[in-house]
């Protein structure tokens, strides 16, 4: 028996919107720790890792570890039928091939049940070791989204270079080139607007903008985004979900030949 009740149903809506363009089908893993997912895009260039900890739910019952295969587009469609302020409950009986999404409006006078078929999905789980990254940038999520969007109108790839002073995003295309530098900020009054850089070594890596633009669909989930880079690892773009966990995107860099 599985029963997860989330007071902020809007959060689950945002989580699905943040994943459905990157991944078609995925297994959600439910354990006493929380509700999680790891999945790659079809080309295995990007990976998304989601964790919603059990403590973040108003009620969390998961009698045994269970993996439920879902089509993320269909799940997003069902969740779009929930109001942003609705309470969302996920329910599944042991061995059932369906999951039920129950939506309750804030005044509790409208209750909706949506039942979705589960799928058998063969997916491989990759081990992601803890790593010390050479450069970590924390910046406003909306600013990062804006930069990725703007640069993708000029070129297909972005060179991200981190130094002690700041982070530089560069691209080139048929019409010309673009460079955006975000300097490290030193203000203390508005931490949500800060650009913070923790650098062990300068890093310069090239990534496909198409994927970064897809990751920025998670922007409504967090005010800040953390970008971690090392020269020999995929970059990690993390959006922390307050009180619940995170959504992390891993993106393999372009490799010089």
């Amino acid at each position: 028996m599985l029963e997860l009740r989330l007071l902020q149903g809007g959060l689950l809506k945002k989580v699905l919107e943040a994943m459905k363009d990157l991944v078609n089908d995925a297994n959600f893993d439910c354990s006493p720790t929380g509700f999680s997912l790891q999945a790659m895009d079809s080309s295995h260039v990007a990976l998304v890792s989601l964790l919603l900890r059990s403590e973040g739910f108003e009620h969390y019952r998961c009698d045994r570890n269970v993996s439920m295969g879902m089509n993320l587009n269909n799940m997003a469609k069902m969740l779009r039928c929930a109001g942003n302020d609705d309470i969302v409950t996920l329910k599944a009986d042991d061995g059932s091939d369906c999951i039920t999404f129950m939506f309750e409006n804030p005044s509790q006078d409208k209750i909706a049940d949506f039942e979705m078929k589960l799928m058998d999905i063969d997916s491989e789980h990759l081990g992601i070791p803890d790593a010390e990254y050479q450069s970590i940038v924390r910046m406003p999520a909306a600013e990062f989204a804006r930069i990725c969007r703007d640069l993708s109108t000029i070129g297909d790839t972005v060179l991200i270079s981190v130094s002690k002073e700041g982070v530089q995003f560069s691209t080139r295309g048929d019409m010309g080139t673009a460079n955006i530098v975000c300097r490290r900020t030193t203000t203390v009054d508005k931490p949500e607007e800060d650009v913070i850089i923790e650098m062990e070594e300068p890093v310069s890596l090239t990534f496909a903008l198409r994927y970064l633009n897809s990751f920025t669909k998670a922007t409504p989930l967090a005010t800040q985004v953390t970008i971690s880079m090392s020269s020999d690892l995929p970059m990690v773009i993390e959006y922390r979900i307050e009180g619940m966990g995170y959504i992390r995107y891993y993106l393999a860099p372009k490799i010089d030949e």
């Binding site: 295995h44 990759l126 081990g127 995929p234 372009k254 030949e257």
Partner: peptide, 14 residues
């Protein structure tokens, strides 16, 4: 010239 790296080049299946 550059090529796109893949996840399995960095992380191994468990």
């Amino acid at each position: 010239k550059s090529s796109q790296g893949r996840m399995e080049s960095f992380f191994k299946p468990v």
